[in-house]
Simulated scan of single mutants.
Amino acid sequence: MSVAVAVVDAETPGNVGTIARAMKNFGLSDLLLVDPPELDPDGEAYGFAGQAREDVLPDAREVTLDHVVENYHTVGCTATTNEDATKHVRYPFETPADLADSLQGVDADVCLVFGRESSGLTNDELARLDRICAIPASADYPVLNLGQAATVVLYECRDLTVSETQLPGEDHSADPAAVEGLHDQFADFLVALGHPGEKRAKTGRMWRRLLGRADPTGREVRTMRGLFRRAADRMRDDDQ
Rank of each mutant, 00 (worst) to 15 (best):
M1N: 05
D9Q: 14
A10H: 08
T12Y: 14
T12C: 00
N15W: 10
G27D: 10
G27Q: 11
S29L: 01
D30F: 00
V34H: 06
P36C: 03
L39I: 10
E54S: 09
V56I: 12
L57I: 09
P58N: 07
T64A: 05
T64C: 07
T64E: 11
L65W: 09
L65R: 06
Y72W: 07
T74N: 11
T74I: 07
G76K: 02
T78R: 05
A79D: 01
T80R: 13
T80D: 13
T81H: 08
D84G: 15
A85L: 11
A85T: 02
E94G: 00
A97Q: 12
S102C: 02
L103G: 03
L103W: 04
D107K: 08
A108P: 04
V110I: 15
C111F: 00
V113D: 02
G115H: 10
R116N: 15
S119I: 02
S119Q: 13
T122R: 11
N123Y: 09
L126Q: 05
A127I: 00
R131F: 04
I135C: 04
A137D: 04
S138N: 14
S138M: 04
N145G: 06
L146E: 04
T151C: 05
Y155C: 06
C157E: 02
C157P: 05
E164A: 13
T165R: 09
Q166G: 05
G169C: 10
H172R: 15
D175E: 15
D175H: 13
A177H: 11
A178F: 01
A178G: 04
E180I: 04
H183A: 09
D184N: 10
Q185D: 15
F186D: 00
A187K: 10
D188N: 12
L193F: 12
L193R: 13
L193N: 09
A201W: 01
T203P: 00
R208S: 13
L210V: 10
L210N: 03
G212V: 02
G212P: 02
G218V: 01
T223H: 12
L227S: 01
L227C: 04
R229Q: 11
A232E: 06
D233S: 14
R236E: 12
D238W: 06
D238Y: 03
